[in-house]
Amino acid sequence: MMKKSTFTLSIAISLLFLLLLSGVAAAQDHEPTDDEVNAIAKQLYCPVCENIPLDVCPTQACVQWREIIRQKLAEGWTEDQIKQYFVDQYGDRVLATPPARGLNWLVYILPPAVFVVGAYLLFRVVRGWRQQAVMETPIASISPDDPYIARLEEELQKRDR
């Protein structure tokens, strides 16, 4: 029983090893292009040159970061793994937007909340006005066919005098 499980395990390990090896080999076949590097770099910000995306930042530090991305891609890392690598090294600030957790939720919740509250307030004000308006008779008299043209002509006449 014992022997069998060790056997299975060793098979599994060697299979995994082979798989990894082939993965690396496959990745090494493929030298990542600049565009692949930039596709990831575009989403990252280095802590030194704030607010300049990594793919266009000309400083030496950013050149090195792009080299790291290139290496990792060559080693077969995925986009998410590479981003996570930078997050682990330098913190969440390397990401273009804060990850939605903890206090950061506020980033995403507050503006829509403010908008909804604003819309609600506007709705109430408008409703209040409308109710008042229904109670009172309308002030402006409107010419039936086209009120805008009528008003425009009236204005223009006034000016020409």
């Binding site: 607010n51 995306p53 969440d92 273009a96 937007t97």
Partner: peptide
């Protein structure tokens, strides 16, 4: 104590 970036996608 943690700085975050609020960038263009936001």
């Amino acid at each position: 104590g943690q700085k975050v970036t609020v960038g263009p996608p936001f």
